[in-house]
Design a protein around this nucleic acid. Structure first.
Ligand SMILES: [Zn+2]
Ligand SMILES: [Zn+2]
Length: 607
DNA sequence: ATAGCCTTGAAG
DNA sequence: CTTCAAGGCTAT
């Protein structure tokens, strides 16, 4: 065998079950004695009912509900409090049910890798359907079919249901009869969701953070003899060649954290630190260029800058007879809708808990608006490719005035009555000025497709990309990041006018018709009575719009007051991303005589 | 939609 | 260089 079964590092083993259950809580195949194996067999014979774990709610799963996953895939696997095994209330319940998923089914014994003697062709068996396995896939040993099934399910966030009671048997012959039970078994057996790559980059190896969740791990290389393995290496920490810290002591590797906590509490802190560093160290690693390009491409694939920064059917809206407030609210709603849709397409969105997702949207949509509009204007606006002039100040004022006039035209149409430039300048002059300034800055630094990273890894991606794209411009990254505070300040400086919605007409008919563009407009100044001097209620409107949008997106309240997002129907909106691969010429069924092997391997019958 | 065969590419 | 687990392609 080529895989090792790492000692469980789960901390979620409820102490209660350990003391109340007469049989061993988690039969660990790596340390299974013959006695316990025999007991398992006895249990198997005595219990005729098929074990049927807790139901799997796939909608919640895709919404980020990790409590349904085995413990080693949950974040709070590291959330051990050093003080005697106390867990926070909600996670205790969640992990109590999850831990039942980690109990391997009896047939799992067949795959226990401890069989030292026969290193060769014992035909591998799929842990899902018992078909012939082809290797490690997403963390466990599976056949090609179950591998593909798991990949397709995760990539497309598919939701299955079982017409029976969720206990269908999965075999090679029956595996296609119930997708729900097949996928549930995949989860129960420990297939790792995160091993399905969001950027679809083929080849290579998964990050250490993902690899650490694998139930089975491949051996480094079976170069050394079986005997050499017993003398030196073994029990090595999970494949961290550059790990600056000493290896985790074997007694920590081979035991659970829980056990450590009970017997040697002071060690837990160290072990936890080690595990955390093992996870986070993958974050600090430089991102290879290929991967960086893929991640950037994945971001570009879901780019919605133009969509968010422009408004469709503007003429219809302008000539609509409904009330001005309604019109602006509709525009605002559509922007919020597009922004929410965009965030849900982001490759890393599944890693962000729903509550945080909502909070970010609520708190940051202004800045996203500013950034989006300014960047779009700088890249695609009228002056995007204008030659740089000598008089920056003059240009700037010109642009501010142009934007104000544009805004005036638009609002006049929207309201059906004129508004003076002076009044406009009084109300939104500062906003327009700020927006214009940011646009100018972006234009000056020739913002193109570089995107600011929300997460550290995207900063790394950016750095890696810039190192190759602009090797002679080492300050580029700083230059880009230096703009962020301006974006942040743009709306906060405005004071009462916090919630403004940048709009812009699409190019083409709209622009011709209006003879101008619409860079910005303000909902608050018109949603209330601007002359009344009362503070505008824009913020309230925005929150309403966000909430309405979330309702439309079928946000539901899950257990424990958790906000959950139903992402069904999200995928079809985005065309599935595909990479082109050069495929070998596929000839009819039977394989004709292969040409002389000039390929890299003898079993390849192509050039 | 499934699954067998293929290409990729980081790690060994 | 080789391995092998990712994703892609395509006949069924
Ligand atoms: Zn299978
Ligand atoms: Zn079923």
């Amino acid at each position: 065998m080529f895989w090792t079964l790492p000692a469980p590092t789960s901390t979620n083993e409820p102490a209660a079950s350990a003391s109340h259950t007469p049989t061993p809580p988690t039969p660990d195949p790596a340390t299974c004695t013959e006695e316990s194996a025999a007991r398992l067999l006895l249990n198997l014979g005595g219990d005729l009912r098929r074990p049927r774990g807790p139901p799997l709610n796939m909608e919640l799963l895709w919404a980020g509900d990790v409590s349904q996953l085995p413990a080693n895939q949950q974040i709070h696997a590291l959330n051990l409090s050093p003080s005697a095994g106390s867990m926070s209330g909600t996670s205790a319940i969640a992990s109590a049910s999850a831990s039942s998923l980690t109990i391997p089914r009896p047939e799992l014994r067949a795959y226990a890798p401890e069989t030292e003697r026969d290193e060769d062709e014992q035909p591998m068996i799929c842990m899902i359907c018992e078909d012939k396995a082809t290797g490690l896939h997403y963390g466990i040993i599976t056949c090609e079919g179950c591998k593909g099934f798991f990949k397709r399910t995760v990539q497309n966030r598919r939701v299955y249901t079982c017409v029976a009671d969720g206990g269908c048997e999965i075999t090679k012959a029956q595996r296609n009869r119930c997708q729900y039970c097949r996928f549930k078994k995949c989860i129960e057996q420990g297939m790792v969701l995160q091993a399905v790559r969001e950027d679809r980059m083929p080849g290579g190896r998964n990050s250490g953070a993902v690899y650490n969740m694998y139930k089975y791990k491949y051996k480094k290389h079976k170069k050394t003899n079986a005997k050499a393995a017993t003398t030196t290496s073994r029990a090595s920490p999970p494949e961290k060649p550059k790990d600056p810290l000493p290896p985790i002591p074997p007694h920590l590797v081979n035991g659970t954290i829980l056990k450590t906590a009970l017997t040697n509490p002071s060690e837990v802190v160290h072990l936890r630190a080690r595990l955390e560093s093992a996870v986070s160290s993958s974050r600090d690693r430089a991102v290879p260029l290929e991967r960086a390009l893929h991640m950037i491409r994945a971001l570009i694939d879901c780019d919605a800058m133009e969509d968010i920064a422009t408004v469709r059917h503007l003429p219809d809206l302008l000539h609509d007879t409904s009330e001005i407030g309604d019109k602006l609210c509709r525009i605002g709603d559509s922007i919020v809708h597009k922004m929410v849709a965009w965030t849900k397409k982001l490759p890393f969105i599944m890693e962000i808990p729903m509550e945080i997702h909502s909070k970010l949207l609520m708190e940051k949509w202004h800045e996203i608006s500013v950034l989006t509009t300014a960047a779009y204007q700088a890249m695609h606006g009228k002056l995007a490719h204008a030659p740089p002039s000598s008089d920056h100040e003059h240009d700037f004022m010109q642009e501010v005035n142009a934007n104000l006039r544009t805004l005036q035209n638009c609002l006049t149409s929207l309201m059906g009555r004129p508004i003076t430039l002076e009044q406009l300048r009084l109300d939104v002059g500062l906003v327009v000025e700020k927006m214009t300034q940011i646009t100018c800055v972006f234009r000056r630094i020739q913002l193109q497709v570089e995107l600011e990273g929300i997460q550290d890894r995207y900063v790394q991606v950016l750095r890696s990309y810039l190192e190759h794209a602009a090797p002679h411009h080492p300050g580029r990254l700083q230059e880009l990041f230096a703009r962020i505070p301006e974006v942040t300040k743009a709306h906060s400086k405005i004071g009462r006018v916090k919630a403004f919605l940048p709009l812009q007409s699409k190019k083409g008919t709209v622009r011709k018709k209006l003879h101008t563009q619409i860079p910005t407009t303000l909902r608050p100044i018109l949603s209330g009575d601007p002359s009344s001097g009362e503070p505008v209620a824009g913020e309230q409107n925005v929150l309403r719009a966000v909430r309405a949008q979330l309702r439309r997106d079928q946000i539901v309240h899950g257990p424990a007051g958790r906000i959950v997002l139903d992402v069904r129907d999200q995928r079809p909106a985005t065309a599935p991303r595909r990479r082109l691969m050069i495929a070998r010429d596929r000839r009819p069924r039977s394989r004709p005589n292969p040409p002389p092997g000039t390929g890299r391997a003898a079993d390849r019958d192509y050039v």
